[in-house]
Nucleic acid binder design. Structure first.
Length: 513
RNA sequence: GCCAGAGUAGCUCAGCGGUAGAGCAGGGGACUCAUAAGCCCUUGGUCGGGGGUUCGAUUCCCUCCUCUGGCACCA
């Protein structure tokens, strides 16, 4: 089976992580864990984008070296991912030497292939946006608006990448391989943007203005444009990649192409236009163009989250307050992949309490209590009837949803199984069976509940790895489970269950007391 | 302005040609193994407005309104 290479966007180390950063990483982590569960080799790459003028300026303001500045911010990101259980295999940091070498190799390659040219340009330059402004960017009063920040008059020579040359190729590719952009309505958006594409891309910045970047190998007076630098991380930190001349790239080719998980804000033009054209220009085939999974945003009370509105949600605080499981679950359960959603702490609590504590946690607890009370926790295997077919049904419905990145839909299947198991308890009434001395029916009911829980934990494990482990521990089983183990009869005859401990303690709030 | 997305129960959303669905919230009930959890029943919507196609539209088409995103314009 082809291995699975998945990446996130690399975060710009110019400020602390917010809920949007956390969402993207958790989403990717869940997909990576699912693919692993399904039996594939997985490489999950994430990291940080550390170059650029804004970083250089922030560091100057803080009175420290750029590297020191980015190291501090980077540490915050890594600590958060650890807290949230984001378990990546590769860490991309654009200031690393190997990355620089890769960027330079690719630049040199483009240069050799005649894809780059040098041209003079003069005009107004926005420091904040790191781009030249044209007359059309002027406001009605003839001045450049505040959204551009400081604007300076610049005349300089720069290096350009022949982007427009590949426009038709990209349009054809998108028509031929619509699956390259998920969800599909984003493909339409990208297509429109490509159709309007004109002009080439300036990929250099003179050192006189910006030193914090990667040098052009064929012209030492320049550093490369941040996007050109950042996008290359997907190759430079890919498994099996080696920038050295004549290196064996068999392993790299085995993993490539990646699935890039990105936010809707960086589809056009960076990931949807620049990146595929860059890959094409350096010799990647059409089949080696990566798929883009474009996710939406968490809004706050219907408004965009932003520092100026003061409504930024700190995932670190959230995780301390409610635990990583609650945050992870909420972030992938309460949003449809690709769409926007409204963030609400109340809803986070509600979904944790209702789905995890009341439905799943309580199911585990009542099952183990009854088994302990009536049967000393010993099971008798039952391979027919009861919940068997329902469990198999939900497992079958779960996998396709996960394959299509519809985590929320997949979780609904897992939860549906828990709901039916709770109904099963009410129908079979084990306490009544115990009182009536109907041992055969009692044993069967208890086995079906325990076995359903074992399978349920497998379905939950990509989203809630710790909790899944907790369920197995309490059931008294050890070892790693794959999706292939989510078949009926895994718990052996005579199995001894463990002791019940509340798995998801309810979050009590002032309103609920 | 162009392109796209969204407008469905109090809330969050699913459905997308055949007399409206889920979860949560609200109301009622029976039970007791359990994290006062779970289970059963239930209140609640002229599916943004208006046209059209159709035997029949929330579902397709047109148009308008509102919100969101991208792109553009701003003489």
């Amino acid at each position: 089976m082809k291995p699975f290479f998945i990446t996130t966007a690399i975060d710009y180390t110019n400020g602390a992580p917010h809920i949007g950063h956390a969402y993207e990483k958790v989403l990717t982590d869940v997909i990576a864990r699912y693919q692993r569960l399904a039996g594939r080799d997985v490489f999950f790459l994430t990291g940080v984008d550390q170059h650029g003028q804004k970083v250089q300026q922030s560091a100057e303001k803080a009175g420290i070296a750029p590297q020191e500045y980015v190291d501090q911010i980077t540490a915050k990101f890594r600590a958060l991912w650890q807290k949230l259980g984001v378990d990546y295999d590769g860490w991309a940091a654009t200031t690393e030497a190997s990355h620089k070498a890769c960027v330079q190799t690719i630049l040199q390659r483009l240069h050799d292939e005649g894809q780059l040219y040098k041209a003079k340009q003069s005009g107004y330059y926005s420091v904040r946006q790191e781009q030249f402004l044209t007359e059309k960017e002027r406001g009605p009063d003839g001045n450049f608006g505040p959204e551009w920040g400081e604007v300076i008059l610049v005349e300089e020579e720069n290096w350009w990448f022949k982007l427009a040359e590949h426009k038709q190729w990209l349009l054809d590719l998108l028509d031929r391989r619509p699956e390259l952009v998920v969800p599909s309505f984003r493909l339409a958006e990208l297509r429109n943007a490509v159709a309007k594409l004109e002009g080439d891309l300036c990929i250099s910045r003179p050192k006189s203005r910006l030193t914090w970047g990667i040098e052009l190998p064929f012209d030492r007076d320049f550093v490369t444009y941040v996007w050109f630098d950042a996008l290359v991380n997907y190759i430079s930190f890919a498994p099996g990649y080696d920038a050295a001349a004549g290196a064996d790239l068999t392993e790299f080719k085995r993993w490539w192409p990646a699935v890039h998980v990105i936010g809707k804000d960086i589809l056009v033009p960076a990931h949807g236009v620049y990146w595929p054209i860059m890959l094409k220009a350096i010799g990647f085939s059409d089949d080696e163009i990566p798929q883009l999974l474009v996710h939406g945003w968490w809004n706050i009370s219907g408004e965009k989250m932003s520092k100026s509105l003061g409504n930024v949600i700190d995932p670190d605080v959230l995780a301390d307050k409610y635990g990583a499981a609650a945050v992870r679950y909420y972030l992938v359960a309460d949003i449809t992949t690709g769409k926007d959603a409204d963030f609400s702490e109340e809803r986070l609590i509600q979904r944790y309490n209702v789905d995890l504590a009341n439905s799943i946690g309580n199911l585990l607890n009542r099952t183990l209590n009854m088994a302990a009370k009536y049967r000393n926790g010993v099971l008798k295997q039952s391979l027919e009837g009861g919940l068997k077919e329902r469990a198999e049904f939900f497992v079958q419905a779960y996998a396709p949803a996960m394959e299509e990145f519809q985590i929320n839909a997949a979780l609904e299947k897992a939860l549906g199984l828990a709901v039916e198991a709770n109904q099963f308890v009410e129908q079979t009434k084990p306490w009544a069976l115990a009182k009536a001395g109907d041992d055969a029916a009692l044993d069967a009911a208890l086995y079906h509940l325990a076995e359903t829980l074992r399978i349920l934990a497998i379905l939950l494990s990509p989203v809630l790895p710790q909790a899944a482990r907790g369920i197995w521990d309490q059931l008294g089983v050890s070892g790693e489970f794959r999706l292939a183990d989510a078949t009926w009869g895994g718990l052996p005859d005579g199995h001894q269950l463990g002791k019940p401990v509340p798995l998801f303690p309810r979050i009590e709030t002032p309103a609920s007391e």
